[in-house]
Design a protein around this nucleic acid. Structure first.
Lengths: 348, 348
DNA sequence: CCTCGTGTTTGGATCGATCCAAAAGTGTCG
DNA sequence: CGACACTTTTGGATCGATCCAAACACGAGG
């Protein structure tokens, strides 16, 4: 209750108070099995009595373990990464680890600065959604520093160099195309991003594969542009104005897809009936849009949890075999991609 | 380029390589003005040549400054806090500080655990959106630890105990009510949350004040309930079904307001013409909703920036006078609160 | 009684920086 | 040339924990 002495309490003080050595106190703090039950109790009581606060910095100096993890995302203001971070946070908290967070804004420069800082702080591991154009050499450099690094959602190079956690967007997009084909769609356009990173390539690969499978190679059309809601609206308006307008759209993410819905309603068309729209991520808003938006669910929170778990595992065994965890990305079908006139079938 | 020796490079190694003492190297690393230009250059070159990495942990042990800041929000998956965090991150990055992040989920227990951890890590300051029901004693305890703490968006107790950064929601809501009254609305309902925290009380105070000012005390109505989009929809449906249905709604946040828009369109009513709706936060989505949503703009990113700046200032002068920064929360009027039949006036 | 093994405890040495008071270097001026 | 002021550099001591080899306690077995 009462505030304790102004002077800092250290292991030495509680050792004196409990009548043992510093080493023993240290062992108690580390929850070691070596120390006898009675002693442990005495030390813990002394620590509580003196209002001791563990100094993790001092411990780090000697042991070079920090109980921290660095997390780099492109933009923490993006709800997708917010949910990802929530999953990471949840898992780390349970293990008494703490995340440092930085937004790279997809800038290589800011990413590099942050990585340097993380190295100075000697985080135990790194969870990295690499900024666009990150060279493979950067990832190798991190490994060279002896810092475990988990790539999340995106990976540099053809296939992940080391540990990786992401969603199976390729299969997700394949399922989306098949679903559309079954409903009779043939002109199916992919609204992709401009940048060429792994997550983008996966969607594209799935799209190409499924269009080919359906014998629709010559009707394939990939539209590239910015990935905001606004852009989604504009891009859709432009596409529908063309003389070979698509009857179905698969959008890079839900924001773009929601923009597409705006465009349709602006033109007095009904999504689902007049033009099918499918997004990616299944953000909360998707289910509540009007009409409800079909989406390929990437479950960011689960990805975050898995990534954090893998990081903890890698900290425990740095030389263990590298893992590549790819979570399912199931297609959630809602009104925006159903021809059926039974509209407004939202769940309450 | 090539990987350096496996053995760790320390100040001592650089000192030997550059032919100076450890102390001098340390001064260079701290960017001190004391050291001569030529020496500084020699040391920097030696550091680069040896691939030196500053060990912040070791520095902390001696100097008890960590260049870190702890941030606690309720839910990082909420876009509002995402934007807030983006502002914080931005400002801290510029000052070479790094944030630890934790979501409390409005749980006192998780908040307490995180605070304890922050104390062990000896962060230089704390940015805290206090969880509901946080006792004033907790905030005092933090100050007692000698850790600067900035309350953000919410504060415990009647008025902030120490430093505080938030938005002027009281004035924002007053402006909203006045705007509605001018348009002829009289039955104006406030859709509030269930919890009783400062940010909630401020909205309520503004509402009461403005309704009284307009002589509408007896028509005042505060509806309390959960604050999700879904809940916003349901609550609005319930309200409009009543026999004294409101003609205007001021919602606790934009999510609730967007839910209200869904409810109106579900009933075949047009927001703005049939029932006015105003939200709080002015999230990106507000401008793009159909019809566009009027909102009291809280500018989370700016709040984040201000909070981080104040934290840096407080670190520099711990005993400086406490500040209470309240940012304007201007009303952004869009179609959802305009009677005028000039609809679909969105900016392109 | 001595040896041995098992379970606990301990005293330096150490991690890698910063702090501080004092020493060394440099130049100016009477 | 020496005193003086000013700039630059330096060598311990220190921060508060962990690590490790060695010491200690104690009961069992020969």
């Amino acid at each position: 209750m009462g505030s304790t002495a102004r002077t800092r309490v250290t292991l030495k003080d509680i050792a004196a108070h409990a009548g043992v050595s510093r080493s023993t106190v240290s062992l108690v703090m580390q929850e070691s099995e070596l120390v006898a039950g009675a002693t442990r109790k005495r030390v813990q009581e002394a620590a509580a009595a003196l209002g001791y606060v563990y100094n993790r910095g001092a411990a780090t100096l000697r042991s070079s373990r920090t109980a921290t993890v660095g997390v780099v995302v492109h933009d923490i203001a993006n709800p997708f990464f917010g949910a990802l971070m929530a999953g990471i946070d949840e898992t780390l908290q349970a293990a008494d680890y703490i995340p440092f967070l930085a937004s790279s804004g997809d800038s290589l420069d800011r990413q590099a600065r942050f990585l340097a800082r993380m190295r100075e702080h000697r985080v135990d591991a790194l969870l990295l959604c690499p900024a666009e154009e990150t060279p493979a050499a950067s990832i190798e450099a991190i490994a060279d520093w002896g810092m475990p690094c988990i790539e999340v959602m995106r990976h540099v190079g053809k296939s992940p160099l080391g540990d990786y956690v992401g969603a199976d967007l390729r299969t997700g997009v394949i399922n989306a195309v098949r679903h559309l084909v079954i409903q009779g769609h043939r002109r199916i356009t992919l609204l992709a991003g401009i940048a060429d990173h792994s997550a983008d390539r996966e969607r594209l690969a799935g799209y190409r594969h499924a269009m080919h499978e359906a014998g629709l190679d010559d009707l394939s059309h990939v539209d590239r542009g910015p990935l905001t809601r606004c852009a989604g609206r504009e891009r859709t308006l432009a596409l529908l104005r063309g003389n070979t307008a698509p009857t179905a759209l698969i959008c890079h993410n839900d924001l773009v897809a929601l923009g597409a819905l705006l465009a349709l309603s602006h033109l007095g068309l009904r999504a689902g009936r007049d033009c099918a729209v499918i997004g990616v991520d299944d953000i909360e808003e998707a289910a509540l849009a009007e009409p409800a938006l079909s989406s390929i669910a990437t479950h960011p929170r689960a990805i975050g949890r898995n990534a954090a778990e893998l990081a903890l595992k890698r900290i425990a065994q740095p030389e263990g075999e590298r893992q590549r965890i790819v979570l399912e990305a199931p297609l959630v079908i809602r009104a925006s991609s159903r021809i059926s006139s039974a509209v407004a079938q939202e769940s309450t």
